[in-house]
């Protein structure tokens, strides 16, 4: 459900249908997190384990080889920090 669904009842599609396929990408699932991941680049070895474990698939390799989380989708679960073999990720208050 996209942000556009947050509207007056008169503007909702018939039966609350979704008529624009693929619009789930527009939904900010990251708006309810309490903690967000922060990577210590001194410790990070760019192994990509965080990206593999992320249940939201919001961590991917950037051009510089590091793995930043896309905070638009990140729900702050902390799995990346837990799995990081170098303890390079810490969860800080959002």
């Amino acid at each position: 459900m996209a942000e556009s669904a947050i509207c007056a009842w008169q503007k909702l599609e018939l039966g609350t249908a979704i008529t624009t396929p693929g619009n789930s990408a527009e939904l900010r699932t990251g708006d309810w997190k309490t903690l967000r991941p922060e990577t210590d680049r001194e410790k990070c070895i760019k192994c990509g384990m965080c990206s593999i474990y992320c249940p939201e698939f919001c961590i991917s390799e950037a051009e510089d080889g590091y793995y930043p989380a896309d905070l638009f989708y990140c729900k702050g679960c902390g799995i990346c920090a837990n799995e990081c073999p170098k303890k390079a990720i810490s969860m800080i208050m959002d």
Partner: peptide, 9 residues
């Protein structure tokens, strides 16, 4: 955020 509007419709 949507359910109540949906029921209202």
């Amino acid at each position: 955020e949507v359910y109540a509007e949906s029921r209202k419709q």
